[in-house]
Simulated scan of single mutants.
Amino acid sequence: MSKQPFLIAMTFMSIIIGGGFASGQEVLQFFTGYGLIGVAGTLVSGLLFAFLGMQIARMSSSLQARSHKEVLAALFGRRAGLAIDLVLSFFLFGVGVVMLAGSGSIFAQQYGMPPLFGGVLLSVLVVATLCLRVRGIINLISAIMPVLLLLVMTITVYSFFASDASLESLNTASGEFATISDGWPVSHWFIGALLYASFNIAVGFPMLSVIGGLTSDTRQAALGGILGGVGLGVLIFLLNIGLFANLDRLVGVEMPSLMLANALSPAVALAMSLALICMIYSTAVGMFFAFTARFATPETSRFKVLSVIFTAVGLLLSQFGFSALIGTVYPMLGVVGLILILALGYRWHTARREARMRLARSSY
């Protein structure tokens, strides 16, 4: 078998697994907070990731797309595709803001420093990277992904078996997560799972479109999307059960994975905090780069000035808090993702109908 499907799968997973996932906050809000039924939600999201990954990779491969704009144009037409692209860019900026807030939460929870310190530090690093083109740093940070995943899985699996909380107490604790966020109540686990898949697809759509376009074999591309989606489903499932087993200790915690790491060992907690900072940094650079590139050509003076301005604005907005921003920005981004899901589903249905019609004509 070709290595291409596995490369696509790993890239797909790397896009989706950012600071919000590794911190445990995303999974806590969109799955664990619903109680034991949240496990069913992880299965729904996993299936959606597999289907959507297959569709995006296959479409971009058949179009030989060099940019996600080509896929959007094929789905919605040029004008509507441009509108979706602009809205998507705006919310990607919101994800960058969430990453700045996440950095502040790590320094506050792990090191007892003001959240503003972590936000300012990450902002400086992001601006320096965008202005100085420190590409080697980004490559180095991306290499932390396997270490981060190993840490998260080790911590959650250990926490699951070490937990002595009763199922009754855990279900009681889940009642305190009745809504995903203030102002955006999501009272049903299925809607939470659908929103989680949709906002993540919106975030990963641009890069997955480019990666799928690198291969001319549509079947290999589709297989890569499926494998990546299944892998994501497994990771979400494992993290969810680890968090649920300790839910009574996680109410109001900004960085659930970090708290579980502290219970395991101070050294593991230190390693986890550093890995989270690296992952959040990598995600923030990607989001602010994509947003700034909409208004200026990369590596120009205008691009550098705008990157400073946009990051500074993001720092101000990040003071609303990590968990509050995840519960606000991500569901809104999820609406954009839902539009993508509907368009991809319609495209899949249309392609299958046309294939059946061609088969019927050839049989005569």
Rank of each mutant, 00 (worst) to 15 (best):
L316H: 07
S209T: 10
T328Y: 04
V253P: 13
F161T: 09
G231L: 06
L195H: 15
Q64V: 03
L232F: 00
I17N: 04
I37G: 09
L274G: 01
G19E: 12
A267L: 12
L276R: 00
G81N: 15
L48H: 03
Q109F: 01
I241E: 10
V186C: 01
A165C: 06
L232H: 00
L47Y: 11
G118L: 00
T218R: 07
F244L: 02
C131E: 15
P146I: 01
Q110F: 12
G345M: 12
K69V: 11
F30P: 09
L260A: 07
N139Y: 12
C131S: 12
V120Y: 13
T156E: 07
G77M: 00
L247R: 06
P115Q: 12
Y34T: 14
I339R: 01
S166I: 02
L227H: 13
L342H: 08
G337I: 12
I155R: 02
P206I: 04
G53Y: 06
K304M: 04
T292L: 02
S163Q: 15
T11P: 03
V44C: 02
A312L: 15
F93L: 04
G96N: 12
L116I: 11
G314R: 08
F107M: 15
L340R: 05
V210T: 05
L270Y: 02
L116T: 06
S265N: 08
G224F: 01
P256F: 11
G118T: 00
S67H: 13
L52G: 07
I326L: 06
F31I: 06
